[in-house]
Amino acid sequence: MKKPTILLVEDDELDIISVQRSLKKLKSDYELHTAYNGIEALRILRDPNVGLRPDVILLDINMPRMNGVEFLKVLREDENLKDLKVFVMTTSSEGQDRSEAEKLGISGYIIKPLNYTENTKRSDSMEAFVQFHLRKILLDENT
């Protein structure tokens, strides 16, 4: 059975750590790759030497160089990448961001807690997302 593969496109180191911790609690075998912005993610996805075809992409919206919506637009225009599952995880509660992302065919949208001083709440929210949404995706892909 193929090991589930996740591409995390996130520029915030604390959020990366939070996703890693939450995934470890799944007690499931998976591969996690990280890109710090949309440009780096596209480079990884298009590099034939890397050969990455993730089961799911976890995407932040607010990133430097190429934000999540710009990344989604390019991804959906690429014949080889347009069908990839993308979950947006963002602090942006802007309706326009969500609307644009949904028009670009995302699988889900989670707003990360805005109160960053309480790391436990942030971790709990991330863990709940991973437990309920990501577990289902990863299990469905590999059954």
Rank of each mutant, 00 (worst) to 15 (best):
M1Y: 14
K2D: 15
K2T: 14
P4K: 10
P4M: 11
T5L: 14
T5E: 12
L7M: 10
V9K: 04
E10G: 15
D11L: 05
D11Y: 08
D11G: 15
D12S: 13
D12M: 11
E13V: 12
E13H: 04
E13C: 09
E13G: 10
E13L: 09
L14E: 11
I16C: 10
V19Y: 12
Q20Y: 15
Q20M: 12
R21D: 11
L23F: 14
K24W: 15
K24A: 15
K25S: 05
L26S: 15
D29M: 07
E31R: 15
E31W: 04
E31Y: 14
L32G: 03
H33W: 10
T34C: 14
Y36F: 07
I39K: 10
E40P: 05
E40I: 08
L42P: 12
L45K: 08
D47T: 07
N49I: 06
N49T: 12
V50T: 14
V50K: 09
G51K: 04
G51A: 13
L52R: 10
L52W: 01
P54V: 02
D55K: 00
I57S: 02
L58W: 07
L58T: 08
L58H: 00
L59D: 03
I61E: 01
M63V: 14
P64W: 00
P64Q: 00
R65F: 09
R65E: 09
R65S: 11
M66W: 06
M66A: 13
N67W: 00
N67K: 01
G68Q: 00
F71M: 02
F71K: 00
L72V: 05
L72Y: 00
V74E: 11
V74N: 03
L75K: 00
R76E: 05
E77K: 14
E77M: 11
D78T: 03
D78P: 13
D78F: 05
E79S: 15
N80Q: 12
N80D: 08
K82F: 01
L84Q: 08
L84E: 02
K85L: 12
V86Q: 02
F87C: 05
T90C: 01
T91R: 08
S92F: 05
E94H: 06
E94P: 00
G95N: 11
G95H: 06
G95Y: 07
D97P: 13
D97Q: 09
D97C: 08
R98W: 10
S99Y: 11
S99C: 10
E100H: 12
K103A: 09
L104S: 06
L104T: 04
S107D: 06
G108C: 00
I110E: 07
K112W: 05
K112M: 11
P113H: 06
P113T: 12
T117Q: 12
T117V: 14
E118F: 05
N119Y: 07
T120F: 09
T120D: 13
S123H: 11
D124Q: 12
M126H: 02
A128T: 05
A128E: 09
V130E: 04
V130L: 02
Q131K: 07
Q131L: 05
F132D: 03
L134N: 02
R135P: 01
K136E: 05
K136A: 06
I137F: 02
I137Y: 00
L138R: 08
L139E: 04
L139P: 01
D140C: 06
D140A: 02
T143D: 04
